[in-house]
Design a protein around this nucleic acid. Structure first.
Length: 565
RNA sequence: CGGGGCGUAGCGCAGUUCGGUUAGCGCGCCGCGUUCGGGACGCGGAGGUCGGCAGUUCAAAUCUGCCCGCCCCGACCA
């Protein structure tokens, strides 16, 4: 490709509305352009990268036994109502009406469609297992798109769905996908981290995410440097220190004038925050829930939601708390009635806590579970943090941020039951297919690749996903043979099957070199009067500083070797 | 949805506080010339509903009201 003909333009300055590195570089390099919040056009070089990633994914999916299909973006809302997931997605679901006023959604994912489709065709156990996938645009009306391509409202996704006759089959499909995903990230030149993830309200026993470690990542990962444990903070479990305050003592009321927060109360009574219990209030599907947790811990809303199985969960507002007759700042479950109480399991592993007195300016000492209060549910609903102990090996947790570039789920039979994806087994009985689903956000993967591969000059594309392999950079001078040699070399490289970006512009060397760096093309070949004196070209890797003179006759072979390996 | 910031040429910005000729600057773009190994220089040019609507005023980029859009933090979100 001749740069003089390439659609798009590189920018010298950082776009004002781009905060993350990948967003800045994508825009500056002329790879994407924003149309509206979370909606982007891909320009030719950016689109080439996207297609390369797609092809790698396609190859790995096919290798794992996947078959490619293409499912409709437009889907009747009815299907979503059938599975109840219209509510789960809520406002994230783009909804529109056809000319007959029938509601349709723009598919945010395709479990409903594929499950119904499989139900029509897979009738016998002989038809399973099935691994069906597509690469297609998805629509989600995200509350807050951000970070350029990191979180968008219209995005390209590879989604594969597995259908098996039983759990063992699902485990096998899941294992295949896990391996395929690792192959994909490796081939894209990405270092990814496999973490345990929350499987959400849908259920299913396992779920894993693939994370690319990056400052700009939205997810917090908790991991143990000792063993290989790693999990999304939503899911991570740590050892909660035992609070041993001796044998349970009789409860005792204490005055705590003006002390509202846990810090204040603990400071006033001169006890560590871990020796207190705090109460937090949530509204779950419209009902007040009383949550009790040790003072030094905080509530993990995902875990809480998993215990409550509700579709809408939010913190209660102060007026709601007051209206419920609760004394904010001094609330505790002791003597409280009329609320669903859910408690973190940390209350069990300690004695003689300080808790609220349910009267203004009053707390009680020596609160013990279950002697002094009961909870409807006791479970782990606390966030794990860096510094906590690992339950597997006793090591100390660390944390980092990651971009979620893939997520795989074991779904089970929830959807196949509702949508009629059942088959006749060997005994002639009808059974629902056991499902899994596996997604990769391709644009996000592209952005993550930049987050992980760049310097202050620009992008450094890994060879397999680079928009072009070679940046051919002639430095013209009147009366030299540079132009002729470069033209010839360009033709030769193209004939050899290499993807060449040919900078045929009448620009100064600085401009060309800087664009080469910004665009991140892995190999740069410079032809100049200086190199031609030695019948050579200058060869440089984008990732390295050094340059090297390579004889004209050898450069094509040298590049081929590098690119094909 | 809550909090904060912003909206002036393709991009980055000044001008808005305190209303007053023809709205500026840099980059980019077009033409000519000189340059040519890390974002060169000179001369000449093109390009603007100052986010939109309404209002106040002799006069609005500037003041007022409403609306729209974008970014960041949070809430939310398979």
């Amino acid at each position: 490709m001749r740069i003089s003909k390439l659609f798009g333009k590189t920018l010298r300055e950082v776009p004002a509305d781009a905060d993350t590195v990948s967003h800045q570089l994508l825009v500056r390099a002329g790879m994407v352009n924003q149309l509206a919040a979370g909606i982007y056009s891909y320009l030719p070089p950016g689109w080439r990268v996207l297609r390369k990633i797609e092809n790698i994914i396609r190859e790995e999916m096919d290798k794992a036994g996947g078959q490619e299909v293409n499912l409709p973006v437009l889907q009747p809302l009815e299907m979503w109502q059938l599975t109840g997931r219209d509510k789960a997605f809520g406002k994230s679901l783009f909804t529109l009406y056809d000319r007959r006023e029938r509601p349709l959604v723009l598919g945010p994912t395709h479990e409903e469609v594929i499950t119904q489709l499989v139900g029509r065709y897979a009738q016998s156990y002989r038809d399973l297992p099935l691994l069906l996938y597509q690469i297609q645009v998805k629509f989600r009306d995200e509350p807050r798109p951000r970070g350029g391509l990191i979180r968008v409202r219209e995005f390209h996704m590879k989604d594969l769905y597995s259908f098996d006759i039983d759990e063992a089959g699902l485990d096998e499909s899941y294992r295949k996908m896990l391996q395929a995903y690792q192959n994909i990230y490796d081939r894209c030149g990405l270092t990814s981290m496999l973490v345990e993830a929350d499987s959400g309200a849908i259920g299913g026993k396992d779920s894993n995410e693939f994370m690319v470690i990056a400052e700009s990542g939205e997810d917090e990962i908790i991991y143990c440097p000792g063993c290989k444990y790693a999990a999304n903070m939503e899911k991570a479990v740590s050892v909660k220190e035992k609070i041993d305050n001796g044998e349970p003592l009789p409860v005792e009321e204490v005055a705590t004038p003006g002390m509202g927060t846990i810090e204040e109360v603990a400071g006033f009574l001169k006890v560590p925050q871990s020796h207190t219990l705090k109460a937090v209030f949530y509204i779950a599907d419209g009902k007040m829930v009383f949550v009790v947790i040790r003072g030094d811990l905080d509530v993990n809303e995902v875990k809480l939601n998993n215990q409550l199985h509700c579709s809408e969960l939010r913190m209660a507002t102060e007026p709601e708390v007051i209206e419920a007759g609760i004394v904010a700042g001094a609330a505790s479950p002791v003597g409280m009635k009329g609320f669903k109480v859910i408690s973190d399991d940390s209350v069990k592993s300690g004695t003689n806590f300080v808790a609220g007195g349910n009267k203004p300016d009053t707390h009680i000492k020596n609160v013990n579970y279950p002697r002094d209060f009961k909870a409807d549910i006791v479970a782990d609903i606390a966030n794990a943090h860096a510094g906590d102990k690992c339950p597997k090996c006793g090591g100390t947790f660390a944390s980092t941020h990651g971009i979620e570039v893939g997520h795989i789920f074991k779904l089970g039979t929830f959807l196949s039951e509702k949508l009629g994806a059942s088959f006749i087994d060997e005994k002639g009985e009808s059974r629902p297919a056991v499902m899994g689903c596996y997604g990769i956000g391709i644009g996000r993967l592209l952005a993550a690749a930049i987050e992980q591969n760049h310097d202050d000059k620009g992008i450094i594309w890994p060879v397999p996903i680079a928009p072009y392999h070679v940046y051919l950079c002639p430095l013209y001078r009147e009366g030299s043979k540079v132009a002729d040699v470069a033209e010839k070399l360009y033709a030769e490289l193209e004939t050899a099957g290499l993807e060449v970006l040919y900078d045929d512009r009448q620009e100064s060397p600085g401009v060309k070199f800087n664009d080469a760096d910004l665009l991140g093309i892995p190999f740069r070949v410079t032809v100049s009067p200086r190199t031609l004196e030695k019948d050579s070209v200058e060869f440089k890797l984008r990732s390295e500083k050094e340059t090297e003179l390579v004889p004209l006759g050898e450069i094509v072979g040298r590049l081929r070797e590098l690119i094909e390996s």
